[in-house]
Design a protein around this nucleic acid. Structure first.
Lengths: 142, 142
DNA sequence: CCGTATCCATTCCGATACTG
DNA sequence: CAGTATCGGAATGGATACGG
């Protein structure tokens, strides 16, 4: 009676959910994208118990989202850094932020501080509204 | 010793996670976006036990992601339909799909069947790469 | 076919104490 | 500061049986 795993699922959404489809992982990635690196920073920001934070960080490292780099400054301990794969989650975080963000202070900005938004574009670069988008046939989803 | 809730968190990512930050909810939304409407369809597609599927559906309805509409064809039972808010999750699903989608058959397409992708654009409509995007200052995140 | 109710195993979470 | 160890309670997940 094990928990069903979607790791091998053909649907990429399911595979993603397997990795970041829980509470803490996404918030950890959010903080990492915001520049946090140290165990203590995450703990303070998230308010999670150390044991569970420890477990999540380990899992994220195992999944290739984070990596531990020796140390930037002093400490004998390493820092948690997003891998390229992990940085790819920016799109997911951004989408969640936009969705939950009506009337909030969430912001994405480019290097010059200009606001950035997520958009759907079709091949030629034409903007597409969500109502006009379809997922592939169901058979392609699983 | 209750589970901490992020529903009131100032960060929209956290609030979103509160609603769809679990396994099943996102997959249910995925299926709903793909056109599934009936209890049985979800159950078959997800392989989830009926009790937990029931609970998730109820929660998603309570959160305004799904609604129950009388019936399209025959049955005395209703169908689960995405609300406007729920359809907004397409961006999230799309992001997850793109992220987990290297070499898979996941597709988004517009009405004409042309492929659609998620992109980051700054104000003027200029494309921005993920590496060039920053989240607001940490203080804005929580 | 659409759920609800029950039972049990597992996993998760929070607090705290402890080590280096 | 950065974790590991342990513990109790809560929520989740799976199977199955039952009722509309």
């Amino acid at each position: 009676m094990k928990r069903t795993s979607f790791a091998k699922d053909r649907c990429p959404v399911a595979r993603s959910v397997e990795v970041v489809g829980d509470w803490w992982s996404l918030l950890i990635v959010r903080d990492a994208l915001a520049g946090k690196k140290r165990f203590g920073e995450f703990q303070k920001s998230l308010g999670a118990a150390k044991n569970i934070l420890s477990g999540r960080l380990r899992k994220l490292v195992a999944d290739g989202v984070l990596e531990i780099v020796p140390a930037s400054d002093d400490s004998a301990y390493g820092e948690y850094k997003l891998t390229a794969k992990g940085r790819g989650l920016l799109l997911v975080i951004a989408a969640l932020g936009q969705w939950g963000g009506a009337g909030s202070d969430f912001r994405l900005q480019d290097r010059n501080g200009k606001p950035v938004r997520l958009e759907l574009r079709s091949e030629g670069g034409r903007k597409v509204s969500p109502e006009d988008v379809r997922l592939g046939r169901s058979s392609e989803l699983r």
